[in-house]
């Protein structure tokens, strides 16, 4: 057998590839922190993105991410496998973000009804270039609390207005108006008005 005919060596399988999601969860449930780190790396980006956008800042997003994964570690024992682990983590993260948003709103006692009175957003001069992703991320952070969460849940995360209303504890119609207001603010911020 020539070298050319030899079968190439099989790549050494990574730990992640050899462990099924069920096994990984079982290891995490047994208190294996290394397995939990693997789980973290599989899902952190999605949850961090959600947390940053809901909170409106990467700093708050990072704090939320820590709380979400600590809570996940504590609660993994109650995970029965009825849904995928990613779905379970997403729900946990979303609930945590919503709790954060609610407590911040309660603290500031500032609801989005004040959005019309908001003067912090100055429209940018009209630009006819396509909206750049980074500009949109930055503009999202500048949206007022309340309409930002509704926009993220509806336009980014894909929930319908009924679900957004239920999640944020507002009427379906209010969800619509908040999303529309957020879009108009973004249009102004991105030089599209």
């Amino acid at each position: 057998m020539t070298a050319r005919q030899q079968r190439p060596p099989l790549p050494f399988p990574s730990k992640e590839a050899t462990v099924s999601p069920e096994e990984l969860v079982a290891q995490c449930q047994a208190g294996n922190v290394e397995a939990f780190e693997t789980l973290y790396h599989q899902h952190a980006a999605r949850l961090y993105t959600l947390a940053c956008r809901m909170a409106g800042s990467p700093e708050d997003g990072e704090d939320l991410l820590q709380e979400i994964f600590l809570q996940a570690y504590r609660k993994l024992g109650s995970f029965k496998g009825d849904a995928a682990i990613g779905t379970w983590l997403y729900r946990l993260a979303l609930n945590h973000c919503l709790d954060y948003v609610r407590s911040r709103q309660a603290k500031m006692n500032k609801l989005t009804d004040t959005l019309d009175a908001d003067t912090s957003i100055q429209p940018t001069a009209r630009r006819d270039t396509p909206i750049a992703r980074l500009d949109l991320e930055r503009a999202l952070e500048r949206l007022p609390d309340g309409c930002r969460e509704a926009f993220v849940l509806h336009d980014v995360e894909g929930f319908d207005h009924k679900e957004v209303g239920r999640l944020l504890g507002i009427a379906e119609g209010t969800s619509k108006s908040q999303v529309f207001k957020a879009r108009m603010k973004l249009r102004a911020l991105l030089g599209k008005a």
Partner: peptide, 18 residues
């Protein structure tokens, strides 16, 4: 705007987060 939202990507958390 809708098109741009569709291009949004996931953000990687800082390395220190873990």
């Amino acid at each position: 705007l809708k098109r741009a939202v569709g291009t949004l990507e996931m953000r990687e958390p800082p390395v220190r987060a873990w």
